[in-house]
């Protein structure tokens, strides 16, 4: 018997080295992946759309910049647009802001994760990947406190270990996995099948 998947959305935070990890995950998520994936990745403010061009074509999911007031849907991977914070409203639509940078960065992983934790509670999966910033650690803790599932890339597997390490110390996540394992784990968890 197939159990009903309890999760409704996945948020991912990535910084330096995050692209390499994302390439081990995003292209392998199948078309029937049952929830939206939302990513805040630290990029140069003028690198608009770079991430999207980069990932599209590789996988079954549609990759795009998040638009304000857009509704979140399964089948899509949404990136925070460069130079904006991305937030999720309680009605599962996106908001953007140009509030001050958090941890010297906009978009900030903390801003995305904290709003997503409020919007999805126990239905949220939060993942921290490679990076050289402490951004995301508090947000991941918030997800955990709200009953969501927390995953961090194994610092030894990450190009840059600081962000995963900080997240592990702050949030004591449910799982510490390599990027390849994270991909498998997500498919097994949400589709209840072995990829």
């Amino acid at each position: 018997m197939r159990m009903k998947n309890r999760y409704q959305a996945i948020v991912i935070g990535a910084s330096a080295g995050g692209t390499i990890a994302l390439q081990k995950i995003l292209p392998f998520l199948p078309a029937e992946f049952p929830m939206p994936v939302i990513i805040a990745q630290h990029l140069h403010p003028l690198q608009d759309g770079a991430a999207i061009i980069h990932y599209n074509g590789g996988g079954a999911l549609i990759v795009k910049d998040a638009d304000e007031k857009e509704s979140l849907h399964a089948g899509f991977v949404y990136f925070a647009p460069p130079n904006y914070h991305l937030l999720i409203e309680d009605d599962h639509t996106f908001s953007l802001s140009v509030d001050a940078k958090v941890h010297y960065t906009r978009p900030s992983v903390d801003v995305l994760f904290e709003s997503a934790a409020d919007a999805y509670g126990t239905g949220l999966i939060g993942i921290i990947l490679s990076g050289a910033n402490q951004d995301g650690a508090d947000g991941l803790l918030r997800i955990k406190q709200k009953g969501g599932l927390t995953v961090v890339q194994d610092p030894q597997d990450a190009e840059v270990s600081y962000m995963p390490q900080t997240a592990i110390e702050t949030a004591r996540p449910d799982h510490i996995l390599t990027a390849d394992e994270i991909c498998k784990f997500l498919i097994e968890l949400t589709l209840q099948r072995v990829p």
Binding site: I88, E89, D90, S97, V111, S115, D118, A119
Partner: peptide, 9 residues
């Protein structure tokens, strides 16, 4: 105002 930013602020 959109609530997610309000809440954060």
């Amino acid at each position: 105002y959109a609530r997610a930013s309000v809440r954060r602020r």
